[in-house]
């Protein structure tokens, strides 16, 4: 049978394909290819050399940043998930449907407030002479140095990730079959046991997806480690910014970006495998 070209169908199909190839796939592929380019006299010239890769991957500071970024993102994922879980649990099982809907609505609001402004607020609040320290000073504590420490960075990440993780966790927990929980109680399983053997496994996919998003966001963010963490040592994102902005060394920045992306893909892939793996 001869296929007739369906202009109508193609009219709707092609805009995305063209746009994303030109401005999404194109840039990413080009970024991979410039890792092999050279910079001469502050100008990027086309080449196919491994110099940038060798330069970056043999440097201690790259691997320090790499390890530090992984550590921070992992720490952020664990802390955010742990802080989020009791709240998600309570929102799923301890409050009414209406309350839950309102809570989720309020959790969406932060997405539409400038992350930069929120970071700046923490900066003001957490400064050594800031609001937090003067408040706890009233009861004779502090002052604590929070800015320019890992604690500062993690607080920034939490601001960024916590609402999303709670939403994702709540949505998956709220979908756990109530009868299953009821059955576990009736069979004499205690509170903790029900949680660990029934609720957590049933909501596994949502919990892991929440964690993955948290990891991706923390891993790629540069605002918190820069403004709240003091950027010492730098994370990979800060490394990309410094390399791009100051040195015009786009190829080297691209090496960092490609390394970041590969790592993310591996983490995301592993997480998806874990999420959908059948229980033993």
């Amino acid at each position: 049978m001869i296929k007739k070209v369906d202009t109508y169908a193609l009219t709707w199909r092609f805009p995305l394909i063209i746009w994303q190839l030109l401005f999404f796939v194109g840039p990413l592929v080009f970024m991979i290819s410039i890792t092999f380019f050279l910079v001469k006299n502050y100008r990027m010239t086309e080449a196919f050399e491994m110099k940038n890769w060798i330069k970056m991957l043999t440097r201690g500071y790259f691997w320090d940043a790499y390890a530090y970024t992984l550590w921070l993102a992992t720490l952020s994922t664990v802390i955010t998930s742990c802080i989020a879980f009791p709240a998600s649990y309570a929102l799923s099982f301890k409050v009414s449907e209406t309350t839950r809907r309102w809570a989720i609505f309020f959790l969406i609001i932060p997405f539409f407030t400038s992350y930069l402004v929120r970071t700046f607020s923490w900066y003001v609040v957490l400064a050594e002479s800031g609001v937090f320290n003067s408040l706890i000073g009233e009861i004779g504590l502090g002052p604590y140095k929070i800015l320019n420490t890992q604690v500062g960075t993690i607080i920034g990440y939490l601001t960024f990730c916590l609402p999303l993780v709670i939403i994702l966790q709540t949505l998956s927990l709220a979908n756990v079959d109530r009868n299953l929980i009821e059955a576990a109680y009736n069979l004499g399983a205690g509170w903790a046991r029900t949680l660990l053997t029934v609720i957590v496994p049933s909501a596994k996919v949502g919990l892991i997806i929440g964690a993955v998003f948290c990891f991706i966001l923390s891993y790629g963010d540069f605002v918190s480690p820069y403004y709240l963490g003091g950027s010492k040592p730098p994370t990979l994102s800060i490394l990309i910014i410094d390399t791009t902005k100051s040195g015009q060394q786009w190829p080297r920045a691209a090496v960092v970006a490609v390394m970041m992306m590969s790592t993310l893909m591996i983490v995301a892939f592993a997480a998806i495998l874990a999420a959908y793996r059948k229980p033993r």
């Binding site: 840039p27 970024m31 990309i240 786009w250 691209a254 970006a257």
Partner: peptide, 9 residues
């Protein structure tokens, strides 16, 4: 940040 670099280039 990766999109940013890729777009810039």
């Amino acid at each position: 940040i990766i999109m940013a670099l890729a777009m810039l280039a």
